[in-house]
């Protein structure tokens, strides 16, 4: 039995007068590849932001690696890759190497210099995402899919135990989406990195994940991929508020 690394109990959240999350409870175990599915406005990104400590929940309890969210001090264990569109200013004058290296900042700690082998670590992280030949390029010269790989490398360099990705494939062409997800699978299988992926890309991810959670303000379903496949289409539509095509 693998151990639980993320646990949410009865978590609720609202923006001013709009209820966004209602009584959310779920667990993520080490080694899971969880896809959180849900329509726009279902609270997917909010859920991730609460998980990452960027937002405080109105009610409920969150435990990360067994510790309460407020006192959790090892944020570097959780690597974060945000939606490409709002992540950064694409004219930013930085090389791929500088961007990836910056992922070490928290791990190295305040008042400390970057380690001597930082360049080697950058090399390894870029290799893991198949981007080693781009290290000297400016980040703005890369395509959307390449940038997302660099951002994964930035998360990987801190050796995270969990990768949290918020719709990472928005704006990436279909062909690259496939290889992007293949890369996530290999990180999950070979390096045993737990993956939590927020997406509405049900078709592409469905044969790669181990667990599914259906979110629309509340969690309608959370379980193994096999169980998810047995849910009827009508039921799924009802939860999502609109039609979601399911691929078997």
């Amino acid at each position: 039995m693998s151990k639980t690394i993320i646990e949410m109990k009865n978590v609720s959240f609202q923006y001013e007068y709009t209820q966004v999350l209602n009584n959310i409870s779920f667990k993520v175990n080490e080694g899971d590849f969880l896809a959180i599915l849900g329509p726009n406005g279902s609270g997917k990104s909010t859920l991730l932001k609460i998980l990452l400590g960027l937002l405080k929940p109105l009610a409920g309890e969150i435990k990360l690696f067994g510790q309460p969210n407020d006192t959790f001090r090892h944020r570097e264990w959780i690597g974060y890759v945000s939606q490409k569109s709002n992540a950064f200013n694409s004219g930013f004058p930085a090389t791929v190497e500088e961007v990836v290296k910056s992922g070490l900042a928290k791990k190295v700690g305040l008042f400390k210099r970057m380690p001597n082998d930082a360049a080697k670590q950058v090399q390894d992280a870029l290799k893991a995402v198949g981007m080693e030949s781009f290290r000297g390029k400016n980040i703005g010269e890369l395509s959307g899919g390449q940038q997302q790989r660099v951002f994964i490398a930035r998360a990987l360099i801190a050796k995270p135990k969990v990768l949290v990705l918020d719709e990472p494939t928005v704006g990436i062409d279909h062909e690259n989406v496939q290889s992007f997800y293949d890369m996530l699978v290999s990180l999950n299988k070979e390096q045993n990195i737990t993956i939590i992926l927020v997406t509405h890309d049900v078709d592409t991810v469905s044969n790669r994940i181990s667990h599914v959670a259906c979110l629309n303000q509340t969690i309608h379903f959370h379980g193994y991929k096999q169980e998810f496949d047995e849910i009827s289409q009508e039921q799924l539509d009802k939860w999502q508020g609109h039609a979601v095509r399911k691929i078997h």
Binding site: G53, Y80, A87, S102, A105
Partner: peptide
Amino acid sequence: FTFFKEMFVLSFDEEFAKASGLP
């Protein structure tokens, strides 16, 4: 000299800086 790496992260991607637990 003290905060160069933190300032870089913060300037490049503020959300990532916060999510990784930097002050």
